[in-house]
Nucleic acid binder design. Structure first.
Lengths: 217, 217, 217, 217
DNA sequence: AATGAATGAGGCTTCATTCAT
DNA sequence: GATGAATGAAGCCTCATTCAT
C-alpha cells in the first residue's frame, strides 16, 4: 500500500524531533545580549542580501559591536550562519510542536499546523524568510542539516499516521508533505513579496483548501 | 465578490504576457555560442553557490572563455545574472504557454500547466532551481521583475477566468495561484534535495491533489 | 673509527646534491620579471623585519606591483617565502658547487669552499643573511627542508672523504662540518653587524685558521 | 701589529662588563612569579614562532595569566621581548663570567669558556636558541644592544690579552672571536636541529679543535 | 574579437592594547 | 591587582573589472 520506509514503532507515534536545548554559550548576560544582537543583525542582512552578499563588518555595524567582537562569539562567518540557521529552525520547530495536539483528529492537527506556522511567519517574518526563502545548500554543515531533517521527519510521520488512521488519502507522505509545506511557503512568499496579506481569513482559507486536497474521501 | 483588480477586458482573455524576444546581441554565430556558454556556466555555478558566492573568473573558466570576454557580452556581473534570469524565466514561460490549451476546460488547463511545468523542471533542473529555489531580491532589476510579473499575471488570470466560469472555487486568485505554484515548487524542491523522484506518477498524483483543493464543489 | 652512517658507495664520492632547475614558471618575460621583483623585495624585507614582521602589501609596494599581483605568482605568503628560500639556497649551493674541484686535495677544496662562500656572501649579502642569519623553522615546508638538507649532506661527505684519505683529522664529520660552517657564518654575521669587514685578507686568514683546526696532524 | 682599537687600560684587564641588576619591578612575590611565568612562556613561543609570529594573548594563555596582566608587567610587546632578551643575555653572560678563571692560562680559559657556554646551552636550550639562533635586529632597543655588546667586548678582550701574552696567534681579535663563537653556535645549532648530540665528548672535541685553530704555534 | 595579467578596493580574520569589572 | 571581553587597525587574500596585447 505504501512503500515509504518507517519503522513500525513510529507508525502511530510521532514526537518532538529536535533537541530544544536553550543554549547559553556565555555566562555573562552582557555577552549573551551581544550574541543575540549579532544574530539579529545577521538575520536581517542575510534575508536582504543573502549570506555571501553580506559582509561581516556590516553585520558588526548593524549589531552595534566591533568587527572583532563577532569572532568572540562565532568561529567564523560560516559558523555564524549555521548557528543562526539552527536557532531559527529550532525556534520554528518549537513554535509548531510545543503543545501540539498530537492526539487530536488529523484535521484538527492540520489546522494547528497552519495556525502555528502562520503565527511564526507573522511574528518572525524575517526568520521565516531566511529559513524558507533562501537556498542554504552552500554553507550548511552536518549539524544544521540534521536540524532541518527533524521537522521534515515530523511532518512525514504525521501524514503516515493520519493515513494509517484513514483520515488522509493515501499517497506518498513525502510528496504530500512537500506539497502542503510548499503551498504554505508559496503563500508566505506572496505575502513577503507584497502580493497578498496574511490575514486570519486568508490563512483559514488556505488551510481549508489544503485540507480538501488531502482529506480522505 | 472578488476584489482582485483586473481590467474588464482581460477577464475572459489571457494571453502571452511577456516579450519572447530572441535577442541576438552579437552578429557572429561564434559570438552567440560564447554568450550561451557563459550563461550556461553561470547558471550552473549560481545554482550551486549563489550569485554572490560565484566569482566572475570562475564563470569564465567553466565557460571556457577568458575573463575579459564576459565583459564583451555583459556589462557587468549584475547584468549577467539579470539576463540569465530573464532568459530562463522567459524560457519557462514559453515552455508553459506555447500552444497552451487556453480554450480548454479548467481541469484540462490545470493538467497542462502541471505537465508543462514538470517537463521543464525535469529537462532543465538547474534552470528551475535557479529561478525558483533562490532568492533574487538582491540584484534583480526592473526589467527582470517585469518578466517575473508576467507569469504571475498569467496564472492569476487563469484562475480568475476559471472562477468566472464556475470551474474553480471562489477565493483570492492570488492566494490560490501562490499556493498551487508553491505546492509545485515544494514538490520540485523535494526532488532537488533527493527526498523524492519526479516520476510521471508522482506528478499526476500531485496534480490531482491540487485540483481537488481548488475544484468547484 | 667513525660511526657516521653513510652508504659505502658514497664514501669516496660526493657530488651535486640538488636539482639546478632553471625554473621558468611564466612564459612571458614580463611575468618573470615581476616574479623576480617580488622575490627581491621580499628578500630585502624579510632580512630586515623577518617573515612574520613583513606585510604582503609592503612587499608589493617595494616590488612596484599591486598587492593582488603577488598572488598570481605565489599561492600565498608562505609559498612565497618557501620559494625564495629554495631559490636562494640553491643559488648558494650552485655558487659553491659549480666547477668545484672535487678531485683536488682537501686543503684545496677547503680553500675553494671558503672562497666561493665568501664570494656569494659578498655578492649577495642579503641572500646570505636571509638564509643563514634567520630561523626558518616556522614556515619551511618539506621541499625547502630537502633543499637545505642537500648542502649539509654535501659538506658532510666532503669531510668523510677527506678523513678517509687521511687529510682531515678524525672526529664526527657532522660536528666538524657544523663548526666550520658555523665559523664562516660567525664571520659573516660580524661583518653584517658592522664589527669587521670581509676583505680578501680576512677571508684568507679565516680559512687558514679553520684549516689548522681540522687538518690531519 | 694589531689595529684593533682598545684603550690601553683594558689591554691586560677584562672584567665583568654588564650590569647584573636583579630587577624587581613588583614588590609582591606573587607579582614576580607572574612576571617570570610570562617571560618563560614568551621565551618558549618566541623560539618556536619568532617574535612577530607570536600573539600576546597566546603568551598570556601559556603563562596562565590574563591578557591584560601582561601589560602590568611590560609596557608593550616590544618591551617584553627586550626585557626577555636582556635577562637571558645577562644570564648567559653571568653563567660564563661568574668565577671565570680570568688569571689562568689562555687554554684553560678557552676550555672554561666552552664548558660554561655548553653548560648553559644544555641547561637552557630555549634561552640559547632564542638568543643566538634568531635575528633580533628588528626590535632590539639601545639598552638591549648595549647588553649584547658586553659579552662581545669581553670575548674580544680575552683574545687581545691572550695574544699579548703570546698564547694565541695574532690576527684580528674580532675575527677570531666571531669565528670561535660562530663555531660554538654552529655546534649548538646542529644539536638543536637534531643533527648531533651535545655530549661531553663532542664538546671536548669541539673545544680542542677550536684551540688548535687559534693556539700560538 | 579575445585574452588573461594586473589591479586595488573590499572581504574575512587576527591581534596588540584598553578598560570596566 | 587581575582579568578577559571588547575594539578597530591592520593583515592576508579574493575578485570584479580593465586594458595592453
Amino acid at each position: 500500500m505504501r512503500n515509504f520506509p518507517l519503522d513500525p514503532v513510529s507508525r502511530n507515534e510521532y514526537s518532538f524531533p529536535v533537541a530544544m536545548t536553550p543554549i547559553t554559550r556565555t555566562t555573562t548576560r552582557g555577552g549573551e545580549l551581544k550574541r543575540q544582537a549579532i544574530l539579529e543583525a545577521a538575520l536581517e542582512l542575510f534575508v536582504e542580501r543573502g549570506y555571501h552578499g553580506t559582509a561581516v563588518p556590516t553585520v558588526a555595524e548593524k549589531a552595534g559591536v566591533g568587527a572583532g567582537t563577532i569572532y568572540r562569539y562565532f568561529a567564523n562567518k560560516e559558523a555564524l550562519v549555521n548557528e543562526l540557521f539552527r536557532e531559527q529552525k529550532q525556534a520554528l520547530t518549537a513554535h509548531v510542536l510545543e503543545g501540539f495536539p498530537t492526539g487530536a483528529a488529523a484535521r484538527e492537527q492540520h489546522r494547528a499546523f497552519w495556525q502555528r506556522m502562520s503565527d511564526f511567519a507573522r511574528q518572525h517574518p524575517r526568520a521565516f524568510a531566511f529559513l524558507e526563502l533562501h537556498s542554504h545548500r552552500d554553507y550548511l554543515d552536518d549539524d544544521s542539516r540534521a536540524v532541518e531533517q527533524g521537522i521534515i521527519e515530523f511532518g512525514t510521520r504525521f501524514f503516515v499516521s493520519a493515513q494509517d488512521r484513514g483520515e488522509v488519502n493515501p499517497g506518498s507522505p513525502m510528496l504530500i508533505m512537500s506539497m502542503v509545506f510548499g503551498a504554505f511557503v508559496g503563500m508566505v512568499r506572496a505575502s513577503w513579496e507584497g502580493r497578498l496579506e496574511l490575514t486570519d481569513d486568508a490563512i483559514a482559507t488556505a488551510e481549508a483548501l489544503c485540507w480538501k486536497a488531502i482529506a480522505a474521501d
